[in-house]
């Protein structure tokens, strides 16, 4: 493998990994810390993308990236306050079913409002130029902007959670709600805010990614599972874990795409060939590259078996 390929793997992996982090950082707070199985997390991501499109249609992208996450966050807080809070006492299954239903409702609503085809949500003109070049491949300024913004968001969340009093209250409300309430804090409000903030992060990711991967009603469905992989692999409630897991998945998947190896190569190395027309060849000719989309799920299974609490988690799933 040449240095060039390695460079591409690292850089492409970094870009994709930070996209995954943006997508799942909100869920780390919601699922990881609050323990709510929010199946509709990617739906908030989708709403973010559509609101980003709609607002930038009437004004511009910069207003959209500021207001859309706030609106999505507020919607999330309302969902927690009027929906999840009431069914919290029935346990995880009820919450899961609730958000499962929410997922379909949001998908249908989005289809009703914006139609079934992708909308033309464009990258802002200001950032639509190639900024850096790595051996002949351009990387647009917008990709770098997304990268920088997601790193900043990681630093901000990390700092708030670990260094400030707000972070202390949040963490305490989740582990010892009665004591925090006795100290005079409004625990249900903390829950609403954390949930809303998590959804807002998903909304922000949507605003930033919708114009790259395409804004369409099925985007939530397609991104739904991967966010859980990131959160569980990283460890419940650990924002640092989510970052590391995102980057590992990003790099692994990018690296896998570059590998044109299959079992036939291994057999040839060992000295015998598989008949091209045999049924066995169907399996042995599958390259690692073709399997790249399942790499994250493979990682999830390995992590769940070997270390159920994830890379940086403090408790088991």
């Amino acid at each position: 493998m040449s240095i060039e390929v390695l460079l591409f793997i690292i850089f492409n992996g970094l870009l994709y990994g930070m996209f995954l982090f943006m997508l799942s950082s909100g869920l780390t707070l919601i699922f990881g810390m609050m323990g709510i199985l929010n199946f509709a997390h990617a739906s908030f991501f989708m709403i973010g993308a559509y609101l980003g499109y709609q607002i930038s249609l009437y004004s511009n992208f910069w207003i959209a990236i500021f207001f859309a996450p706030i609106i999505v966050g507020y919607m999330g807080a309302m969902v927690e306050k009027y929906g999840l809070r009431n069914i919290h006492k029935y346990g995880h299954i009820a919450e899961l079913l609730f958000t499962f239903g929410l997922f379909y409702i949001i998908e249908e609503l989005v289809q009703m409002i914006w139609g079934k085809t992708p909308v033309s949500y464009k990258v802002p003109e200001l950032l639509n130029f190639p900024l850096i070049q790595i051996s002949g491949m351009d990387y647009p300024a917008y990709s770098i902007f997304r990268l920088v913004l997601s790193i900043l968001i990681f630093l901000a969340i990390y700092r708030v959670l670990s260094k400030t009093k707000t972070g202390l209250i949040i963490k305490a409300s989740l582990t010892n709600p009665e004591i925090v309430a006795a100290l005079g804090h409004n625990v249900p409000r903390v829950f609403s805010n954390v949930f809303g903030f998590g959804c807002g992060l998903a909304g922000l990711a949507g605003v930033m990614a919708g114009n790259v991967i395409g804004t369409e009603p099925s985007m939530a469905l397609l991104l739904g599972p991967i966010v859980f992989v990131v959160v569980v692999t990283g460890g419940l409630g650990s924002i640092k874990g989510a970052l590391v897991a995102s980057l590992i998945i990003g790099m692994m998947q990018t690296a896998a795409v570059s590998l044109e190896l299959n079992l036939n190569n291994a057999f040839q190395y060992l000295g015998f060939n598989v008949d091209v027309n045999s049924i066995l060849n169907h399996f042995t000719s599958i390259t690692i590259s073709q399997l790249s989309p399942i790499v994250p799920y493979l990682l999830l299974i390995i992590i769940l078996i070997a270390r159920p609490r994830g890379l940086f988690g403090k408790r088991d799933v």
Binding site: Y16, L222, L223, Q253, T254, S258
Partner: peptide
């Protein structure tokens, strides 16, 4: 299912 086409383009 593929969100990121950069590796393929590379």
């Amino acid at each position: 299912k593929v969100q990121d086409f950069n590796p393929y383009i590379t």
